[in-house]
């Protein structure tokens, strides 16, 4: 098990994960990051075209190893 840090936010504000999460491997990191992004979306997604939300994962050495993001697009169809 190793500890990974999941920073998250949008363009304006990034919150650093100071606690970290123990994960057994990259698959588990990816799953934890995805679940975090889903929760972040519920909390932080505003009705703003182009808003982007992300979770970025660092390992214990501080190296970035994974980024999960999504962005909202709102287009009028008429």
């Amino acid at each position: 098990m190793a500890r990974f840090f999941f920073d998250s936010g949008d363009r304006d504000l990034v919150l650093q994960d100071e606690i970290g999460v123990e994960c057994a491997g990259i698959e588990e990191v990816r799953r934890a990051g995805f679940e975090g992004l889903v929760d972040l979306t519920r909390d932080a997604l505003k009705s703003v075209d182009g808003q982007q939300l992300f979770v970025e994962v660092r390992d214990e050495n501080g190296d970035k190893i994974l980024r999960l993001s999504l962005s909202l697009q709102i287009r009028s169809l008429r």
Binding site: F6, S8, L15, D17, I19
Partner: peptide
């Protein structure tokens, strides 16, 4: 009812 990653973020907030 939150993921561990979001628990950390919320404590940080």
């Amino acid at each position: 009812g939150l993921s561990t990653v979001h628990v950390n973020r919320t404590l940080q907030e």
